[in-house]
């Protein structure tokens, strides 16, 4: 076990539905690893299981050399590992201002200098200080997602679990956020585990990726192989074809 994040044969079962079925991924220090695959295939569940938000019924999770059991995570875990959720509205508190939500993690971890950090975090994600005292419902979808990213970065974690971090953003803001993520990864030697259904985004951001289908990892490959078409599974090949855009079937 050499990875910073290592998931071995992990299963998550709801009633008798296997959302995750003996899935394994191993991510090295400073690596950016992608997860792609069909909707409902268990990508979010894998990230949530690492964060202690989905119940693992078998298998093992190691993060930074420590085995994580059950759903309890220590304070130090959240300092080191932050997650950006797929659904930014759900993950922001509806009745708290942006300022308060950015302040909270700082307060929990006893970090001072809040004012400066908040302004910096908002600036980093391209939101001016005018947004600081707004509530989530006063923001557009993309603006909310940027707040969620700012909140994850403000604690300066070493591992980021990113669930579709830019799917709510327009291309121009997406480019800015992807550049920002790449830059902080380089500067702070972060490790990323990133879910995206956009193969352009995944191959841009990640060195290696896993393809998931029905709770299982069906293929692991490098972005370079994917781009060059060195693909083992038909399902992965279909994803590549579908990435080319909509084609009207002519009758």
């Amino acid at each position: 076990m050499t990875g910073v994040v290592s998931v071995e044969n992990l299963s998550v079962v709801y009633d008798d539905f296997r959302a995750l079925d003996t899935a394994s991924v191993e991510i090295g220090a400073g690596e950016s690893f992608g997860l792609v695959g069909e909707s409902g295939s268990g990508k979010s569940t894998l990230l949530r299981a690492i964060a202690g938000l989905a119940p693992a019924s078998e298998g093992a999770i190691h993060v930074l050399g420590r085995e994580l059991r059950g759903s309890r995570r220590e304070k130090a875990f959240y300092r080191a590992v932050q997650m950006v959720f797929q659904d930014p509205y759900g993950s922001l508190h509806p009745r708290q201002t942006i300022d308060r939500q950015l302040m909270e993690p700082l307060a929990i971890h006893g970090i001072g200098d809040g004012e400066r950090r908040i302004l910096k975090a908002l600036d980093e994600v391209g939101l001016g200080s005018g947004f600081r005292f707004r509530y989530p419902h006063q923001l557009s979808g993309g603006q909310r997602q940027r707040v969620a990213i700012a909140r994850a970065l403000i604690l300066e974690p070493s591992i980021l679990l990113l669930d579709e971090p830019t799917s709510a953003l327009d291309a121009s803001v997406q480019a800015e956020v992807l550049n920002l993520l790449e830059q902080v990864r380089r500067d702070r030697k972060l490790t990323f585990l990133m879910v995206s259904h956009d193969l352009g985004v995944v191959t841009h951001m990640c060195d290696r990726l896993a393809v998931m289908q029905a709770g299982r990892v069906v293929e692991r490959l490098s972005s370079a192989d994917l781009v060059a078409g060195r693909i083992g599974e038909d399902y992965t090949r279909n994803l590549m074809v579908a990435s080319k855009g909509f084609r009207r079937k002519t009758a």
Partner: peptide
């Protein structure tokens, strides 16, 4: 500014 499969542009144009 869209990332394109196969194009290696770091950072992306903004």
């Amino acid at each position: 500014c869209m990332p394109v499969i196969g194009a290696d542009r770091h950072p992306l144009p903004v």
